[in-house]
Design a protein around this nucleic acid. Sequence first.
RNA 1: GCGCCCAUAGCUCAGCUGGAUAGAGCAACGGCCUUAUAAGCCGUAGGCCGCAGGUUCGAAUCCUGCUGGGCGCACCA
Length: 930
Amino acid sequence: MDYRSTLNLPQTKFKMKANLTQKEPEFLKKWEKEGLYAEVQEATKDRPLYLLHDGPPYANGHLHMGHAFNKILKDMILKSKRMFGYHAPYVPGWDCHGLPIELNVDKELGAKKKEIPKLSFRGACRKYAGKWVKTQSAEFKRFGVLADWDNPYLTIHYSYEAAIAREFNRFLTNGSVVRAKKPVYWCSSCTTALAEAEVEYDDHTSTSIYVKFPVASDLGIPALEGKQVSVVIWTTTPWTLPANVAVALHPKFDYGAYEANGEVYILAQGLAESAMHAFGFAEYTEVCLFSATEIEGLECHHPFLPRTSKIVLADYVTLETGTGCVHTAPGHGREDYITGLKYELDVLSPVDDRGVFTEEAGKYMGMHINDANPVICEDMQASGHLLSQNKMNHSYPHCWRCKKPVIFRATKQWFIGMDNNDLRQKALAAIKDVTWIPSWGMERIYGMVEGRPDWCLSRQRAWGVPITAITCDDCGEIMNNDFINKRIDEFFIKEGADAWFAHDVKEFMEEGFQCLCGGTSFTKEEDILDVWFDSGVSYAAVLEERGLETPADLYLEGSDQHRGWFQSALLASVGTRGVAPYKGVLTHGFVVDKHGKKMSKSIGNVIAPEEIIKQYGAEILRLWVSSEDYRDDIKISDEILRQLADSYRKIRNTTRYLLSNLGDFNPATDTIAFDDLEELDRWALSQYERLKRKVRGGYESFEFHQVYHGLQNFCTVTLSNFYLDIIKDRLYSELPDSLSRRSAQTVLYEIAVGMLKLMTPVNSFTAVEAWDYLPEDAAREDNLFIALFPDENDDYLQDELHGKWQQLQQVRGEITKVLELARREKIIGHPLEAEVWISVGVDLAESLADQWQTLERIANVSKLNHVDAPAVGATSSETIAGLTVLVKAATTEKCERCWTRSATVGSHGDHPEICSRCHAVVTALGIEEA
RNA sequence: GCGCCCAUAGCUCAGCUGGAUAGAGCAACGGCCUUAUAAGCCGUAGGCCGCAGGUUCGAAUCCUGCUGGGCGCACCA
């Protein structure tokens, strides 16, 4: 007869094929409908708080791998914290102001852009940002991120805009805000000042010229008396010459006077030859040498303007190119500016915000600087001041948005002074009180804050929160008081930051207000705030406003944020609250391709999260996030994804097998007490206990790759290859309610429940899906996101058992090797076809004395005989001294039910095809004879 | 150019404060099974520990330099 139906074969409705791409959206829909996030928050509200504060992505464009990695990492941390017993709310946020949005709206508006009023334009920007928030929100949700998606924070919410203004006004009130004319990067195409972070370097072809600055005063060098002497400068920006006020020489270099063609040129000695060559002078004589210090302070004639330029000293002058005499325009260069401060030079910047010369530039007024370059050169050529002109390709700063070359231009800007109110020192002290993960994050940000310039807050653009400062038209003082601050706050809460532009300045001030100078006419500042200020104050706008805790437990972003959000938040919070806004900061690396190269469209190595989800599902994306050690760069490639998909299948299938053997198990009534479990089952629990600790430890230290590898190894090595393979016989063949079968099921159930919990933060979809296929158990939690991780259980550790079984597994390994040899020689196929003779050395003999039957079972052979001396033809082990193994085909009959070869097959008349064990089972089941 | 970081099998990771033949899993290759079956089991192979020096009885581990890569900064008059 067919005994198959008398076996307890595995059975479950949990599908082997995950079909993630289809099933995940169904789960998401269900969770959204049920209000899962709210349910979890409600259920955990009395637990201690763990606050991870979300850094806002910029609301523009689709999400990339970096976004996906970051958000999933946060999700895994929050889910694991909840399972550690915390209440962990998660308010996602978006950064919605700023130039990129403004530029895209510009583009959409096209020609109309110039006609529409500011407020309409801002409205369009708001709409644009809202559209991307919606898109990105949907994309984040699809990753399986559990968050308060219905109540995110947006930097364009009225309440948020009000908070920004409030925080700015705090700085204004405490005297940290300074106005200064400073050269800043300026994009004349975008007509805005750029933060340094908004400037990128790229190759650019410039006109490089050598220009004579005729010496105006007596050099005091006899050899040069009565001669036509010029200092020669080299520059790649002819258009900045109208702003020239000095020529800088290096205090330590030797300079020489070189005579050619009847004139004398002053150059650094080290560059004389190349320079004279560039001028086309084949022959020249060195009249004399002198140190730059000898001519410091002397005056030269400007090459084409009726004024003089001073000879100054600066140690940034190099001998790499040029003449060693550097054209200095404090209004057009940072170093020039510093030199200018030292020598009290004028900061000239005769260029307007579109890059057009102003009347200060004399005859060049009205000309764009780009058009002026050749004209200036021609003029100097004509006047004989131009010695040489060339094209030069070099790295030059470009605008990060429009990719056009930027200029340095002195304009009025608003700053938070790093050294006002001791901000720098306070920030440095606060850094030391924060836990940085990895620890080198501290040095990184410390160095950055230590050396950073003042924070330029102002942008001459439309889409942002205004700098809420009011100045007196008569004396220029800033009017700041409680009344104004309060009024601004009220307006912003009601109407958003638009109120600043919609209402007259008087409406923000007390009626009849007069400046101390007596002035009664006031002007609102038109500049807007740097967006880093917007996001920087999120601790106030989000955490404080929503009654959450500050400082937050954790900020978590890519390592670029050491000089982005981590820093702006730190400075804002230290400047107004005196403390860092976070207790801990975790950073991760950047997503790179399989060669470790960053992703870029031009290389074509970009992988979008959307593609991965379409092809594999979010679970694979999440598994990827968990599998990589993010402290380094995070690699992704098709190969990695394929591997993860395989790995996922293994975990899923192992889970499925556990479930399939629990179909008839009732935890309430069938559970076997720990002490009554079979030894192998207790051993399995000890392995599970070790896994549990490894996984819990991995979550605790945010080392999710430990979780991934732990689960992966456990499923493969401990369960699939060993434990599950061995207990099959018991599970399938014994009576359903037998002690040995229930013993195995007790352990399978505990492991199944535990494993699903342990994988929940990573593979949320799969864990939740499988959870429903467990046997009924009233004691089990319904909702995995509220459930706690399984506790550590010292009873399960079973150290002696652990050691003993390590040895047994080793011996088993030796047996399986010989089985493989026999298989190769076609002596056996399935291990149950084998009969084994084993002999061991004295030391092993003792520890294995009563383990022969165990070995027979775990080697899954039909018969294992222990012999004192090596059997004839036995194979000696290479790794265990004295161990020999002989494998032969078993000569007894195969039991048709359990496939074991046994001498008892045939001894039962009513069931001649099965062994005694199976006969007893079949009889107990009441099955009539075959 | 400067600061911080990274480099171990084809892939993802272990390898603790220096200690013996550098470990797992996956993938690869070969075989078995058909009672987890678009599964499962067994076996085999695979490493100049980025390169070069140095310290040491002993280096994947410590030091120096170099190469490649990442993030950030600066400069390019």
